[in-house]
Amino acid sequence: VQCVYILGCLLLAGTVSLGSTAEILENGLPILWAQTASQVSDLPIQNGILTPNPWNFLHRMSLYRLVIVATDPFKGSLGTNTTDSPLWGLALQLGWMLTSGRLADPTGATTCGLQTGDTSCISTQSWWGCINYFVSALPFLSGAQQGFMGPEVQVRMQVPADAEDLCTTYANCTALYPDAMSKWNAFFQGLKAAMESPLPDNEKKDYLLGLYWTAQMASIYASAACNARQSHYSSAEVSFANNWLHSAEYVSAVRFHSSLEKSVLFLSPLPSRVLQDAPNTADLSQEETHTLYIFSWMNSIDTLLGGTLIRAWRSAMCSVDAREKGREMLEQLVLNPSFPTSTVFSLITMTCSAQSTT
């Protein structure tokens, strides 16, 4: 029964690829990428300490650019193109949050993030901005600690008075969110170690993507600290936000290679504006409304089944080969509406032996 439910979800998900309306690219790169810092010294430095302001969109996007540039020489088996880093998915995601209005002040108390105010401002009251903080500031602090930003570079994130619940330094974040920081440390250390690894490229790639998604999911779990900020949104937006988080469980299980090109496919159909309870979603495109339906349906079924849907999916994605096939399947479901369902069914129903590679 579990497999039938999973199959139904994935078959429905295959109809997402009808086009896109979300604005996530500018000249083939994330929004405002050309205006971000290309080197560490482009960010503010006070008393020898790097002090980026993660509540400024360009500064936060710069964190991604600097980490991508710094880790590119180590990505090896992940690909030779400059767009092959899995961190591109997070950069594109931040751009989508900006253009869809999700980084603006949801309380209406300020003009932060609004066209009538400071468009580069990320509101400290934005749930989306808070969630993204955990997958932007934390990996940057970890990467700097591991030496990717240069020798002995110290970093302290600027913090507004109303965001003091969030960590700002490597030591502070490690104390508050030890699991997330240790997982990001493992990812950056793994990049260096993989350069000398004798494993075949496909296994090294799977290993690195495993470290990356483990770190990203640990950050997402840590971002429960942002939950109170959901009170500023409509029930429709909160439902979408929670369903969106739930979908990450499926993507992480296959160790999706979130390169720039592949991430565009999955981010384009996301809703291009903040949702309100009324007037419904009549102004959204067919792709956007379908994506909302899919996310909601999958989460609802998983809740109804007591979490067995995601557990069955994780169980199927149990080896290097299975995850590789899982990634290919997800891409085909998005790109190719005629993808044979029998292939999906056979993949989902496969089981792992004790000797499977993890």
Rank of each mutant, 00 (worst) to 15 (best):
W213G: 06
Q216M: 14
D283Q: 08
T341F: 10
M217C: 06
Q125C: 10
S41N: 13
A180Y: 03
M298E: 07
W244Y: 15
F188A: 05
S319H: 02
M61T: 05
G28N: 06
E152A: 11
Q46A: 14
A137F: 02
Q158L: 15
Q189V: 15
C318N: 00
V69P: 04
W184E: 08
W88M: 06
F266P: 07
S235Q: 11
A228F: 04
P160R: 11
T36H: 10
Q93A: 10
L92M: 05
E203Y: 09
S263M: 11
T214W: 07
E237L: 08
I45F: 00
P160F: 13
I310S: 01
L260D: 02
L32F: 00
S315P: 02
S100Q: 00
G79C: 02
H257N: 07
A225N: 12
T291S: 10
V153E: 03
G306K: 00
Q146C: 06
T110E: 03
I122D: 06
V1T: 13
W55R: 02
Q154P: 01
E249F: 14
P178Q: 12
A171T: 15
T349V: 08
A186C: 08
L32N: 02
P279G: 13
T169F: 03
M157I: 12
Y293E: 09
V153C: 05
A104P: 01
T111P: 09
K183Y: 14
Y212W: 12
